[in-house]
Every structure is written in structure tokens, then in C-alpha cells.
Simulated assay, not measured.
Amino acid sequence: MSENLFADELIRQACDDVSARSGGNRFVELLEAGELPRERLAWLAGEEFRIVRSDQRSFALLASRFPDGSAGGLFLGLAQGEARASALLLEFAAALGWDGKKLRGYAPLPFAQVYPAYLAWCALYGTRSAVAVAMAANLDEWGGYCGRIADALTSRYRLSEEAVGFFRFFATPPPGFMEQAEAAVEEGLEAGEDPVEALRAAQALHVYETAFWDALVTGLD
């Protein structure tokens, strides 16, 4: 791979690579068929309860590490988005009969939490371009799943639009996100950050995203 890629080319390459590696998502497929036990929806709420809070802190740390230029605005905006998502998640949990006490008492599945653990590592040690590229590729994949989940929850499980607001929120990227991500990547590349490392981060985040969904269908025939 050439080390002289422009930011938009690097992001496109990462998105294409993640798309090529993506297989089916059994959790979403069972949900769309109306065959996913409601207990697993509660698992989803419990896992996300921890993930969004962890990711909010990770993005806030990234914003403090890279406060200048587009990177600071990108990471601060993502942190604020996670705060908004946290409130929306409570609506989803409430529709399942779960309150804050139940969410806090839920025991997370280790393999469902490798994604936020890796993002936390990136927040400490990663480059701005690696995180921006990885998030651009991941939001494309995650957003597609969220749109399908919201549709299935309203059509198959009769949840209200208010209850699926968490998934609608993530179904499309924040306004201006891609432009900010490209600018942050460009800043990183100009500062000498390694584009190969950025692609590796996107690939790793995809693997951990897959592990999350696989954990949620553990034990189902």
C-alpha cells in the first residue's frame, strides 16, 4: 500500500476492507425473523449500558490528547453523542422492563466487551488518524445494523419508535462526521502517523464488533 494516500482514500479503503470481511449477523437475522428471545434484547441493553459509558470516556480522553484542529472537534462530538445515546438507551431498557438498577446489576459477557476495551486502549495509545479511520469504517457497519434492528423491533417486537430511539440515533452518522474524520486523518498523516496502522485499527475494530454480536447469540440453536 502506498504511504501517500489521501485521507478520503484511506477511509474508503478501510470501509471497503471491512465490508469485504463482513459476513452475516445472526443476532440481527434472528431479530428480523422474530425468533430472537426477548431475554437477548435485555442482554443487548445491558452490554450497551457499559459500552456507551466506556466509549464516552474514551472519546473524551482522545479529545484531550488531540485538542487542536479537526481531531479535537471530532472526538468531542463523538463523546457528546455517546452521552445522548446513553439517555436513549434507558428508553429501550424501560420498554423491556429494565430500570437503572437492573442495568447496573447485569453481568457483562467478556467477549461482548472487547470492542470498548480496544477503543479504550486506542484512546490511550492510538493515533488520531487510526481512531478516525476505524470509527468511520465501524460507524458504517454499526449504523447499518442499528437501522435493521430498529425496524425489526418495531415490526416484529411491537416496540414504539420512542423505545428504539437509541438505534435510530446510530443508524446514520452525525452531520458532518465524515468531513471531520477526513480532516482529522489528514492532520494525522501530515504529522507523520502511519496509514498502515490506521487500516489495522479498522480491521481490529471490525473483529471486535463481530465478537460482540456473536456473544449475544451464544447458546442459541
Rank of each mutant, 00 (worst) to 15 (best):
Y106I: 04
L78T: 08
L119P: 01
G72A: 10
L62S: 13
L88R: 15
Q13W: 00
A20T: 04
D55C: 00
S86N: 04
L124E: 14
S129V: 01
C122Y: 00
D8F: 10
A83I: 03
S58F: 03
A120G: 03
A71C: 01
G24H: 10
G23V: 02
N4H: 10
A71L: 01
V28Y: 04
F49P: 00
R57A: 13
A33V: 02
G73A: 04
I51W: 08
Q80P: 03
S19R: 13
A60Q: 12
K101Q: 14
L78S: 12
G97N: 09
E29Y: 03
C122H: 07
L10N: 11
D16G: 02
G77W: 01
P110L: 05
S54K: 02
P37C: 10
G100S: 10
N4G: 08
E39R: 11
L30M: 14
S129G: 05
Y106E: 13
E82R: 11
L44S: 02
F92L: 06
G126N: 06
A120R: 12
N25C: 12
G46N: 05
E91N: 15
R104E: 15
S129A: 15
P116Q: 06
C15R: 13
R40H: 11
E47I: 05
A85W: 04
G69C: 10
S2A: 09
R40C: 06
K102E: 11
L74M: 12
R38N: 01
W43S: 09
G72W: 07
W121V: 01
G77N: 07
A94L: 08
S86F: 06
A107K: 09
A20P: 03
R57E: 11
F111M: 11
L119K: 15
F75Y: 11
F111H: 13
R84N: 11
W121Y: 14
S86M: 06
W121R: 09
G23Q: 09
L78C: 11
V52I: 12
R21V: 03
L78I: 12
L30P: 13
A120E: 03
F59Y: 15
R26S: 06
Y118M: 08
E91V: 06
L41P: 09
G126C: 02
E39C: 00
